[in-house]
């Protein structure tokens, strides 16, 4: 987790260093199920997943995958920045055993009064390069030499 990156330090086309998670095993999914106290069988009960729900295998929780996207962006934005918006779709399944690469690329920059806004595309690819969780995000970053992004975050006037 970095301390600070300034709006001026970011260029359109910049790639955020990807975050690797995995290989994600059944124990990883059980640990997550226990931590959030929800035991959806499709993450650990293979007959239920495949025979009842007709899935190709045990699924990596979408609820876990979204955490990885939030972590990538939070760590990139640094303490002085703020992750304002994240949107994503669970477009494809990830199956237990896969290693995920969480990625983001800068698509745009906008200037608000007290901070700059960075538009990013985000997603999650498995080791075969298949995208499962395409989405986008908006991150607020401080201007160089200026105060950190206000906390709690105050969105720009519409």
């Amino acid at each position: 987790m970095r301390e600070r990156i300034d709006f001026e330090d970011v260029a359109i086309g910049d790639q955020v260093a990807p975050l690797a998670k995995g290989p994600l095993t059944t124990p990883h999914l059980m640990r997550w199920s226990a931590a959030m106290e929800n035991w959806h069988k499709i993450h650990y009960d293979k007959p239920f997943a495949m025979e009842h729900d007709k899935l190709p295998g045990l699924l990596i929780n979408g609820s876990l995958k979204q955490q990885f996207i939030a972590q990538l962006l939070k760590d990139w934005a640094g303490r002085a920045g703020w992750v304002w918006q994240i949107k994503f779709q669970f477009r494809a399944m990830n199956i237990v055993g896969e290693t995920l690469s969480i990625w983001a690329i800068v698509k745009g920059k906008r200037e608000a009064a007290d901070y700059g806004l960075i538009d990013l595309d985000v997603g999650i690819r498995n080791e075969k390069g298949v995208e499962s969780t395409p989405g986008s995000a908006v991150v607020a970053l401080p201007y160089r030499g200026r105060a950190p992004v206000p906390y709690p975050f105050v969105p720009p006037a519409a």
Partner: peptide, 14 residues
């Protein structure tokens, strides 16, 4: 009916 998580839009403030 089976239940799947389709995605989300989240705005963070604090």
């Amino acid at each position: 009916l089976a239940l799947l998580n389709g995605g989300a839009e989240i705005e963070f403030f604090a």
